[in-house]
Design a protein around this nucleic acid. Sequence first.
RNA 1: CGGGGCGUAGCGCAGUCCGGUUAGCGCGUCGCGUUCGGGACGCGAAGGUCGGGAGUUCAAAUCUCCCCGCCCCGACCA
Length: 569
Amino acid sequence: MRLSEGFIPTLKEIPREAELPSHRLMLRAGLIRMLAAGIYSYLPLGWRVAKRVITIIREEMDRIGGQETFLPAINPLEVWQETGRAADFGDMMFQFKDRRGRGMCLAPTHEEVICDLARIHIRSYRDLPQIWYQIQTKFRDEPRPRSGVLRARQFIMKDSYSLDAVEEGLDRSYQLHREAYQRIFTRCGLDFIIVGASSGLMGGSGSQEFMLISDSGEDTVVTCPSCHYAANLEVATSVKEQMAEDAFSGDTQLREVHTPGKRTVEEVSGFLHIPKSKLIKSLLFIAEQGPVMALISGDDDLNEAKLMTAVGAFRPAHQEEVRQICKAEAGFIGPIELEGVTILGDLTLTRTKGMATGANRDDYHIVGIDVARDVQVEKFVDLRIVGDGEGCPQCARPLKVINAIEIGHIFRLGTKYSQSMGATFLDEKGRENPIIMGSYGIGIGRIIAAAIEQNHDKNGIIWPLNIAPYQIHILSLNADHHKCQTVSEDLYQILTREGWECLFDDRRLRAGVKFKDADLLGMPIQIVVGEKNLAEDKVEIILRKDGSRKIIAIDGVGKEVKKILTQKK
RNA sequence: CGGGGCGUAGCGCAGUCCGGUUAGCGCGUCGCGUUCGGGACGCGAAGGUCGGGAGUUCAAAUCUCCCCGCCCCGACCA
């Protein structure tokens, strides 16, 4: 492609709306343009990258026996009501009515559609296993789209679904995907880790995420530098060291103390002169089953994902509800002598003594609590957020808490969807069973953004070879210099004929502009054709990756390019 | 949804507090000339519903109210 003819609008100045390096560079290099919040057009260069990524994904999916389909982006709301996810997604789902008034939506994902196909066509265990996948635009009306293409409202996703007759089949399908994903991300030039994850709205018995470590990431993962433990913060666990000493002993004389106006852990701890770890934070939520109180140590924070796992969907109680249920203001509430509330305690509190918490009476706290003796805890579960430096649950060495970008997620769904939608098959003995499903997603836009996050410098993008929009960028430094023009033109023709994809900067612009654009656009190889070297029938080859330069004879270019591009593959 | 910021030429911004010439600057664009290996220079030109609406006023980019859009923090996030 000639830059003089191409639609590759580069930007010298940083667009105001962009903060992340990847977002800025995607705009500056002319890969994307925003149409509305979280809704982007892919321009020719960006789309070339997307197509490369898609090709890699397609090859690896086909390799594990995946069959590509193309499913509707518009779905009748009904199928989403069957599984209850219309309500789960709520405002996240774009909804509208067709002309007959039928409820429709833009699909945020496709389990329901797959399940519908499966219940119509899968009859026998002989029809299984299956892996169906698609590469499609998905829609989610994110409450807060941000970070460019990383959290968009319309985005391209590869999603696949495995259908199996038996649990071991799911294991195999899951494993196949895991391996395919590793190959996909490796081929895209990404440096990633795999972490244990929460299944969230998807349900199912377990999932893993493919994560790319980056300060720009919106996810938080916990990793152990000593062993292989790695988990999303939502599900991560740890060994909390510091509580050992005085946790299981202390004053157990139960009594109320006057704590006027002392509401927060800070205030109460300071006022009563007891460490924060001896306080119990009592947090009131309204779950579907009714009010729930979560108890955690005063020096911990509640992990809402874990609470969700324990009690299902919930929301914080409103002020009036707190007053009504606990007879006191938030800040003075506690689990003791509390009627009609399900009480969940964090594991670390199980046998603690000498604790303090709210008295369910304004301006009073209770001290001298022996949790086992005094608190009617329904069950003790892990509810706390892991902190940096806490002990690894596997090897006890200090954990690290870091930011990451989620680029893929694989779920063992089980029978959640097949059961609610009646997707069943007959097994060898003629019994009807629900199909066992898995679901596996990859965000194409996220791969692109993540690749840039991981591969750029102050001058621009540094494309990994396999997903670079072009492999070679030829710069003809002086359009008025005859030899410069003919030699660069020849190189462009020859290299293209040899099968390389070339971007050819033949514009009538100053050299500096071309250098800057070449660095910004980030093709792996730059071939500089300029007067100086042409005097000796030579051109310069620059590797974008490390800036290394080599001056070689014009007729040696083909060989040199081949050498560089094939050794990297 | 809560908090904050922003909206003026294609892009980046000044002007708004304290109303008053013809609304500016840099980059980009177009024309002519000089220049030509890391975002050149000179001369000339085009380009604006000052996000939208209503109001106050002799007079509104500027003040008031309402609305819209975008960004950031938080909540949320298969």
